[in-house]
Each structure stands twice: as C-alpha cells, then as structure tokens.
Design a binder for these strands. Structure first.
Length: 281
DNA sequence: AGTACGCCCTGGCCGC
DNA sequence: TGCGGCCAGGGCGTAC
C-alpha cells in the first residue's frame, strides 16, 4: 500500500522522466478510476497539450503541476504508476486501467488490481480544499509543537497517526513501525502521552519515514516504483506483519490486534500500555 | 467527537 | 482440481 515513502520514491524517479514533458493524450479503459469528473472527456480536455511543470507530493497523492491545474493521482492500496517507452498491450493487460501518453513515446501506465486508486484534475487554488490533509510530516514547519497540538484528543494514537486529516501520508505499515520506534502502545490515547513520549513520537515519525524513503519503500503487497522495481524497506520492518515472530530488540513475540478494522502489530514488551508516567530508567 | 463498521475491489491462501 | 470463505486495507459514508 503506497504511503508517503512509496509515493515520494515514485515522485523522485518521475521527475527525471516526465518533468518538462507535454501530455499528448490519455487512454482510459476503466472510467471508474477517474473521479470527481462528469466524464473522461473532461479530464482529457484539461490535461492534453499541457506541460508537466513540476512533480509534487502531498500526503499519499502524487501531483503533476500543469498550467493552473493539477493532475492528482492516488494509488489506493495496490495502484502502480509505471513508466514505459514501449507500445503497451494496453487492452490485453487486465490491470492497466489508463495510459498517459507523453512526447517522445513516453508513457505512464496506471495499474491497479483492486481499483481503489484514482486520478482527477483540480484547480491549483482548490487543491488543499479538495485533499483536506493535515500537515506534511517531513517539512520544517512540522515542529514538535505542531505534533503536540494534534495530540489533544483521546483518540487512539494508532488511529490518529493514520488519520490523513491530522497528519498526511502515514498508513498502516508506517504507523506500526513509528510506534515501535517510539516505544508506544498503539492503543494509547493520544492525550495520555508523556512529554518524553511525544518527543520520541516526533523523532520516530521523521526517522521511520526517512528510512522508508531511503530503502525505496515497502513492497509487502504489490508496490513497485515507476520502473517496476520493488522497495527494500520490508527487510527492515520490525513489527509490521511480523506477528508470531520474535521482537528484533527483546525477542518477545510480536502481537497482532485489530484497531478500527485495521491490523496493528506491536511488541508487548517494548510498547507497554502504561499510563503517562514514565518509569525512571 | 470519537469510533466501529461496511463498502468498494481482487488475488492469495486455507480447508474441505 | 475447485470452490467457498476469509483476509489484506485507503478512503469514504453511515450509524451510534
């Protein structure tokens, strides 16, 4: 499932491949991936003939800056954006739902097995209103104080980290890994964290997301980068999908529980559910 | 307001 | 070999 590190990896690769290039056309086989538009023709009219000025990312969304419009691509669970210069057997490939054609025969294939991904065009000035995302966790303005203010409600910390309206870009994999790094139990109410825990959480968010980017993302399910390569971060996972296996720190068996319909993995010893007061080391 | 749950969707896996 | 049942979960809508 592409989260911030996976989308950022794709963005960095695509900059060198399609930035500055003009979109010549879009072929759409599965119209349901085009959202927020009355017709496929509408998106076509707004992107064809336009040059990709810049590639950006906001949370888990990839942003192609065109002339005043932005083409937004969200990969959902199993979406992939694959760069190709070969003429693709588009109609025969059951998972390639759309192809964006650029000059010089360059193409971006939009593949998605589960069809949760989507693309749409939005006016630049309406982007934030449309996305409704919390702050980017890897920018300078995301300070310890910003995080502290987000933790004022009793929401379970795991749920809060995955709430895109609170913080942008963190999903199930990275929230598990962040909470392990910070040694915080996923069920802890956000407003029960001690000063020290908030600090650890703040540092863990940056450290784990950067680590994810460093290893080019997680390919646990189906993630591939723009050139079809896997990420290597799952080799470094310490809790995600490791239930039943020994903790890499203390050898305690990693546990899996369900929180809000999603699986959460944690080490019961490293991430104890004790209340705010920290044990003195 | 917080939270649980169902839905969209399909492949993979398990048990029979 | 096949088939039903369940699981994976991002985002969204709904209900409590």
């Amino acid at each position: 499932m592409p989260e911030l590190p996976e989308v950022e990896t794709i963005r960095r690769d695509l900059i060198n491949l399609v930035a500055g290039k003009t979109i010549l056309g879009i072929r759409i086989k599965l119209p349901r991936i085009i959202r927020k538009h009355k017709s496929a023709g509408e998106i076509r009219k707004r992107i064809v003939g336009k040059k990709v000025k810049e590639l950006d990312r906001r949370g888990k969304s990839l942003l192609f800056h065109l002339d005043g419009d932005i083409l937004v691509i969200h990969l959902g669970m199993t979406g992939q954006i694959l760069f190709s210069t070969q003429k693709h057997p588009f109609q025969k490939d059951k998972y390639t739902h759309a192809v964006i054609d650029f000059e010089e025969g360059k193409q971006l294939l939009f593949k998605d097995v589960r069809q949760f991904g989507q693309m749409y065009v939005v006016r630049k000035e309406n982007l934030e209103k449309t996305l409704e995302l919390g702050p980017e966790p890897l920018v300078k303005s995301f300070t310890l104080d910003v995080l502290r203010k987000l933790l004022s409600a009793p929401t379970k910390i795991k749920v809060l980290l995955m709430d895109q309206k609170k913080i942008a870009g963190i999903g199930n994999i990275y929230s598990d890994e962040i909470l392990f790094e910070a040694r915080i139990h996923p069920l802890r109410p956000a407003n029960s964290l001690s000063q020290d825990e908030v600090k650890r959480l703040y540092q863990a968010i940056a450290a784990i997301l950067k680590k994810g980017i460093k290893y080019r993302g997680t390919s646990a399910d189906s993630y591939l980068d723009a050139l079809g390569r896997k990420g290597r971060y799952e080799e470094h996972h310490r809790v995600y999908r490791r239930s039943g296996e020994p903790c890499r720190v203390c050898r305690t068996t990693i546990k899996r529980i369900t929180i809000g319909g999603r699986s959460a993995h944690f080490c019961p010893k490293c991430q104890k559910y004790h209340n705010s007061r920290e044990l003195r080391a």
